[in-house]
Write a protein that binds this DNA or RNA. Structure first.
Length: 404
RNA sequence: GGCGCAUUGGUGUAGUUGGUUAACACGCUGCCCUCUCAAGGCAGAGAUCACGGGUUCGAGUCCCGUAUGCGCUACCA
């Protein structure tokens, strides 16, 4: 069986480094196993999805050297299939129409709302199977739907039983049906929801291994239910430990700003190979402990077994320009700059100098030898590509500041 | 509220059938080299393996509990 994995980001902002790591791990796995690495853009949230974000995701992957096989799949294009599948489940009695009016919820208060509702339900003895429409006779359901009454479609989770799956990282997982509510498949406006869309698309794309963030670990049980209802074989699952901020809190754009964006690293002078190497070591380590690894070595040594389960802290100090990002990332970048083949470094230096109007055409012919000698000399003290145009400015320009 | 996952020096990790002084990398300190800053070389500090019980001749490794953090629990993804 050919391995088929996918990276499925939702285009609602720049490429987060956590997402970039998921993409990397999927890519490594595919390349190692001689499989396919696919890209699916989960743009079903029309309000928040932007084309610009999709572009930045693709750009970021290109920068990291993560090439994908086959055409990009846009999830929104499959909405009809998702709806059809949900309707089929209703017809088969595996899902039902819920005519309960939609409750309005503010995004900012959902978490609290969940807790409040859970407490209230516990107090009133309402469980996950108490939906009044769960056992509505099919004919009545048809009549009300035909009359134009709005309804959501929910999966009818069996009264008793457990879901099981084996996670390549977290081991055997089990969950009682009582803990799982009758999840909504289709909103009352006909819009298919995440869990349904993911499962249908993964089946459609013949995904064999789902490798994604640990935040989906418990949701996976719902998806397992869906695979079963749909009569499809479930793929292998592997969940990746989350990447946390220095205070061990969630790494978020709002709180932490540009350090979490992949493009920041490109723009601030990181060598892509170095950042890829650093990312690979967040939550995974090669068996022999060697840390500087070429792509070929990464591909060869990568294994789901060596991914560990505790979250990784991404260390940085927001207000310290010298430690603006993880020290080890900075060190690794410096290590690449001073040890990579000069021929590979030169084009990056050229781009950096050119962007700062320090590049002269002679460097490509008459002064080529001088340039090589100079770069060879100064690369040993630099941490990022930016340093060539800043700290190294004096080598390339007569116009520079100096400390008397 | 419920359920789940995690917890090894400041950080990333090794330690996968329990067995001598808990290993590596980053960072940190000192010395050497050096016009400076790096790089490089040498030396060193830093962990009662979250806490409390238990099983065992013996536990970071197994069991139970507690704490803390994180995740999920939405007609978000």
């Amino acid at each position: 069986m050919t391995v088929r994995v996918r990276f499925a980001p939702s285009p609602t902002g720049y490429l987060h480094i956590g997402a970039a790591r998921s993409a990397l791990f999927n890519w490594l796995y595919a390349r190692q196993r001689g499989g396919k690495f696919l890209l699916r853009i989960e743009d079903t949230d029309l309000q928040r999805s932007t084309e610009e974000s999709t572009r930045s995701i693709i750009e970021g992957m290109q920068w990291l050297g993560l090439d994908y096989d086959e055409e990009i799949v846009f999830q929104s294009a499959n909405a009809d299939k998702h709806r059809a599948a949900a309707n089929r489940l209703v017809a088969e009695g595996k899902a039902y129409r819920d005519f309960t009016p939609k409750a309005q919820r503010e995004d900012a208060t959902v978490k609290q709302g969940i807790v409040d509702r859970a407490r209230a339900h516990a107090a009133e003895g309402i469980d996950h199977r108490s939906n009044p429409y769960r056992d509505l006779p099919a004919e009545e359901s048809e009549v009300r739907a035909a009359a134009g009454e709005p309804f959501a479609v929910r999966l009818k989770v069996a009264l008793e039983g457990k879901t099981h799956f084996s996670d390549a990282v977290y081991g055997e997982q089990e969950r009682d049906y009582a803990e799982i509510e009758d999840l909504v498949l289709l909103r009352s406006d006909g819009h298919p929801l995440y869990n349904l869309s993911v499962v249908i698309d993964d089946i459609e794309m013949r995904i064999t291994h789902v490798i994604r963030g640990q935040d989906h670990l418990t949701n996976t049980h719902k998806q397992v239910l869906l695979y079963q209802a749909l009569g499809a074989a479930q793929p292998e699952f592997a969940h990746l430990p989350l990447i946390l901020a220095p205070n061990k809190g969630k790494l978020s754009k709002r709180k932490h700003g540009e350090v979490v964006s992949l493009t920041t690293y490109r723009d601030r002078g990181f060598v892509p190979e170095a950042f890829r190497n650093f990312l690979a070591l967040l939550g995974w380590a090669p068996p022999d402990g060697k840390e500087i690894l070429t792509v070929a070595e990464l591909v060869e040594q990568f294994s789901l077994e060596h991914i560990h389960r505790s979250p990784a802290v991404f260390n940085f100090q927001e207000n310290d320009p010298r430690h603006w990002t993880d020290e080890k990332a900075l060190w690794m970048n410096a290590e690449y700059i001073r040890t990579m083949p000069l021929a590979d470094l030169l084009p990056m230096v050229k781009a950096e100098l050119r962007a700062n109007k320090l590049w002269r055409e002679e460097y490509d012919d008459d002064e080529r030898a001088w340039l090589e000698k100079t770069v060879e000399l100064i690369r040993h003290r630099f941490f990022t590509l930016k340093d060539f145009s800043q700290q190294g400015r004096a080598y390339f320009s007569e116009d520079f500041d100096f400390d008397e």
